[in-house]
Amino acid sequence: MTTVIFPGRYDSLVEIAKFVNEAARQAGFSNLEQYQVETSVDEACTNIIDYAYQGENRGDIECTCLVEPDELTVILVDHGKPFNPEYIPIPDTNASLDERNTQGLGLYIMRQWMDEIHFEFTQDCGNILRMVKRKEKKPC
């Protein structure tokens, strides 16, 4: 288990990506699976900055990677406002161009590309987001 604390700003996203990509590689994930983890974590961290901290440089993002064979757990902790995913709209990916907006797309991507997503808020720790991805099993 490895934990790194990053400043809550957009410039940190590239460093966070390197950190989780390495963990995903250690878990034995394919290039596509690594990319899916990288994207999901990027979206989660952007949401932390935008929604929990409501701006850059208001607090840290604590990122923990737990590597197990064929499985990766990423835990993101922030100390911002409680984040309630129920308030985030679900995007209509079949909408026409005129009606299309991108609100909620980040959370949608996370839900599609990670196997498990758990949001929790505690007064002591703040927001705790736990995401799990398992390596796709190849058919025998």
Partner: peptide, 9 residues
Amino acid sequence: DFISSAGLR
């Protein structure tokens, strides 16, 4: 190399 929803926007 990479695009997030911010880029898609």
